[in-house]
Design a protein around this nucleic acid. Structure first.
Lengths: 232, 232
DNA sequence: TGCCCTCTTGACGGGGTCCTCACCCATCGG
DNA sequence: CCGATGGGTGAGGACCCCGTCAAGAGGGCA
């Protein structure tokens, strides 16, 4: 699960990040409120998994942490856990009323942090309540892709794809015309930084081209990667 | 919204109850773990609104408060907030890992209590009480699901499902056709972030397929999860 | 207390997916 | 024209994932 860590101190961020990574989270680090908001909002460019939870430090340089929390709540339903050194009750109530799901006071026990994160993300709706209504249907000429149901059809007839095939197609289809580099595709679809020595990627591309019966749809960019040709 | 207050001390209960009532909650008071569990379980006789949240004091006479929390979590998905004088980190982590949604240490500020209650019940999906009138009946071809009474019938004949079976079916039925990931199902139905190694999920799916006499209704999406096939 | 229902776990097996490997072809630079 | 580089292709086998079965733990109810 992806986690957004909002923290201006790089040393603290590195330490916390290490702990969270060890517990299975993919940590994205934002150093300011602006950066956090930009990372949260689904931009047309990068279509990634939505964040499962936000760890928001209130001591930010550019803007008030409470304000950031409010803005996050206005746009998404992603759970927010406030982290701060301010221990007074007033601040806690203020934070919670702004839409925060929990409020932890520094210094905190790392075990408790993990436990509270899990408590927040297991609440019903948290799993589905990612970012704002992202695009779920993609049309590319005759090809129609439905993300939630993981179904693909060409000219109206359904096509059965395997997991890797679908993930690969979905990735490319999010930015038609844009070239994805090989290593980028590997890391997104395979979720591992292992750079294969084999022909794995090519095999899956070939399979996709065959199943979609449109070999020209996926274009090879020699020495770089692949891209989907944008429909006219 | 109805709130279940589990507290053995009558004086404390009266005081807290008054505060909560003033904030718009309908408070039901249970003096022991047994009483709490009996109040929570939906009896076929009295058809009442389900509880929106449980305030669980850990200092109970009859049984361990943690145990009670575990039992509650086993049967319902109602949010639980633990309230106790035990402030050590160990207890907090233990409580949260048992499925509690929050953990407040006595003595607490009443304003913070209210804020934390609101933070817990504000989650989308947690609104079993007064909020959005969610869909209560689901029809999928020959299968009819009634959420409030937790009854399921196929072709008009009733089918007896266990708790987990019903929760699983109800989850999938909420969005026919869309694929639910395994982890998502685990976290929603089991409400615990334990990543099981066993075959638990598959066993329940198999049981459901058999009882509904429609093996094709629940479709396996290899490497991802399951989904209900949308009716034609 | 004893029985039954539910849930969990583990072993086992089958079948679908994925990766590897070898070889082929296309492109590009000299 | 020729070699080097990098992608395309077609098997085959390994691995992974899921379905099934059986056994056991725990709680509920009489």
């Amino acid at each position: 699960m992806r986690l957004l860590l909002v923290e201006d101190d790089n040393h603290v961020a590195a330490a916390v990040s290490a702990i969270l990574t060890r517990h299975g989270f993919t940590v994205v680090h934002a150093r300011s409120g602006d950066e956090a908001l930009r990372a949260l909002l689904p931009s047309p460019e990068k279509e990634q998994d939505p964040f499962g939870v936000v760890l928001l430090d209130l001591g930010l340089p550019d803007q008030d942490g409470y304000e950031v929390c409010g803005k996050i709540r206005k746009r998404t339903t992603t759970p927010v856990i406030m982290v701060t050194a301010r221990s007074d009750v007033r601040s806690r109530i203020h934070g919670l009323n702004l839409g925060a799901d929990d409020y932890i006071v520094k210094p905190y026990d790392t075990g408790e942090l993990i436990a509270r994160i899990h408590a927040v993300i297991r609440r019903p709706g948290a799993a589905t309540g990612g970012a704002a209504p992202a695009e779920t249907d993609l049309h590319l000429g005759a090809v129609h892709i439905d993300l939630p149901t993981r179904t693909v059809s060409v000219d109206g007839t359904a096509v059965s794809l395997t997991r890797k095939e679908f993930d690969l197609l979905a990735l490319l289809a999010q930015r038609p015309g844009v070239v994805f580099r090989r290593e980028q595709i590997i890391s997104e679809v395979w979720r591992t930084s292992w750079e294969g020595t084999g022909r794995t990627l090519e095999v899956h591309v070939a399979s996709l081209r065959a199943k979609l019966r449109m070999p020209a749809l996926i274009e090879t960019v020699r020495g770089v990667g692949y891209r989907l040709v944008a429909p006219a």
